[in-house]
C-alpha cells in the first residue's frame, strides 16, 4: 500500500469511528429525550437494549431534563472520554505512525476509575457522580487512543487483503 492509500484508509476509518461514537452517545441520551416527549415505550425499549452494557441504576445516573441517561455516570464519563479521545487523536504526534502508545499509559489512565470504584465498593470513601464521571472520562480518553489505533490497523489490514485478492497476489502472512 502506498502512503497515500494508508492515509486515505486511516482518514475514512477515523471518521467512521467518530460517527459510531456519536451515534452511541445519541443512543445513551435518547431515552431521556423520549421520556421528555412522554414516549415511555421507546424509552423503555432503548434502556432495555442498552441494559447489557450497564447496571442503569437511576440514582447513579446523570439526569437530562430530569430524566436519567441510559447508562450510569461512570459509563457516561467513559463514553464521553472516548469521544474526546477520538477528537484529540489526530493531534497526537504519532498519529501518522502506525505505532501504539506503551501499555503502561493505559494502566496509569485506568487506575483512577479503578481506585474510585474500589473505594466506593468497599465503603472506604463514598464516590460521587462527579468522581465517577471524571475518572471515567480519563479512562475513556486513554482507551480511545488504543481503540482508534487498533481499528485503523484492522481497516488497513482488511484493505490490504482485499487489494491483494483483487490482484490475485497472496502476500506472505496475509493468510
Amino acid at each position: 500500500m502506498t502512503q497515500e492509500q494508508i492515509k486515505k484508509v486511516s482518514r475514512v476509518t477515523y471518521f467512521a469511528m467518530l460517527l459510531g461514537v456519536i451515534l452511541w452517545l445519541i443512543a445513551i441520551i435518547a431515552p431521556a429525550c423520549f421520556f421528555v416527549q412522554k414516549q415511555v415505550l421507546p424509552a423503555y425499549l432503548m434502556r432495555k437494549i442498552l441494559s447489557p452494557v450497564c447496571h442503569q441504576i437511576i440514582d447513579r445516573s446523570f439526569l437530562l431534563w430530569g430524566y436519567p441517561l441510559a447508562v450510569c455516570a461512570r459509563c457516561s464519563g467513559i463514553y464521553f472520554g472516548v469521544l474526546l479521545g477520538i477528537l484529540f487523536y489526530p493531534l497526537l504526534k504519532s498519529y501518522k505512525k502506525l505505532e501504539l502508545l506503551p501499555r503502561s499509559y493505559l494502566i496509569v489512565m485506568l487506575l483512577p476509575t479503578t481506585v474510585d470504584f474500589l473505594l466506593g465498593a468497599f465503603h472506604i470513601l463514598e464516590n460521587t457522580h462527579f468522581s465517577r464521571a471524571f475518572t471515567g472520562v480519563i479512562a475513556g480518553f486513554a482507551l480511545a487512543f488504543y481503540i482508534a489505533r487498533a481499528i485503523i490497523n484492522l481497516a488497513l489490514e482488511i484493505t490490504k487483503t482485499i487489494a491483494s485478492k483483487r490482484k490475485g497476489v497472496v502476500f506472505y502472512g496475509s493468510k
Binding site: I49, P52, V53, R103, Y146, I147, A150, N153
Partner: peptide, 17 residues
C-alpha cells in the same frame, strides 16, 4: 451482539498490545 462487539474491541486492543 453488543457484548460480542465489546469482546472484539478487547481483542483488537489485545492484538495491538
Amino acid at each position: 451482539v453488543i457484548m460480542t462487539v465489546f469482546g472484539g474491541l478487547g481483542g483488537l486492543i489485545g492484538a495491538s498490545l
